[in-house]
Amino acid sequence: MAVLSKAKILQRLSYPVKDKRSLVITPLLDMKSLDLDSVDLRLGSHFLLPRSIQQPFFCPDRDSATSQHVPMHVPFGDYLVVPAHQTVLGSTLEFIKMPLDVCGEVLTKSSVARTFTVVETAPWIHPGYRGCLTLEIANVSNTPVLLYPGRSICQLILMRVEGADMGALPSATYFGPVYPEAPNFDHPEEDLERIGVPKEKTWILVRKIATNRT
């Protein structure tokens, strides 16, 4: 697995979209975003802010996609305040289409990381993925931090996958979002039933509590 150099990235960007090796990063507003071995990505203007929930816990189930967040739009030129020790979901301004033989990793830009703003905790991007990347942004500092849509926030490292399946059809889950997307879970009892845990066990109780409280 080798990291793609700037020359290789530019080469991939010049393939037509139907070429399985093609990489799309759009809009590329500044060619200086391309570093020797990475691409700087900017913050988009849509966010999902955590909602204050009424139940005493968060149950990762099918309802969590809509119940946990409030969508928000922050126009370019404006900013979002992330209070100390708070989190938001944002997304990259750039829409990415990954080649079928390349995977990627998103890392916080070092200058941003030094403000104790952590941009990604699930940084892996699979071959063939397309969409604006949802960013889990956490302010782990003791002071509020301002986020400006349009400014560079993270960097994308691209790596060649040896022996990639070039005929694979992409999964429809998380395909093509242009705004940050909330998690996509099945109900826990259905998930666990697939590995043999009977539905009647604790999970039903957990779901009942969650349902009653919302």
Binding site: P16, S22, V24, T26, F95, K97, R130
Partner: peptide, 14 residues
């Protein structure tokens, strides 16, 4: 072509 491949067509390669 971009739409067919699930891609935002603000940049197209020709």
């Amino acid at each position: 072509d971009s739409f067919l491949h699930g891609v935002v067509p603000s940049t197209v390669v020709m």
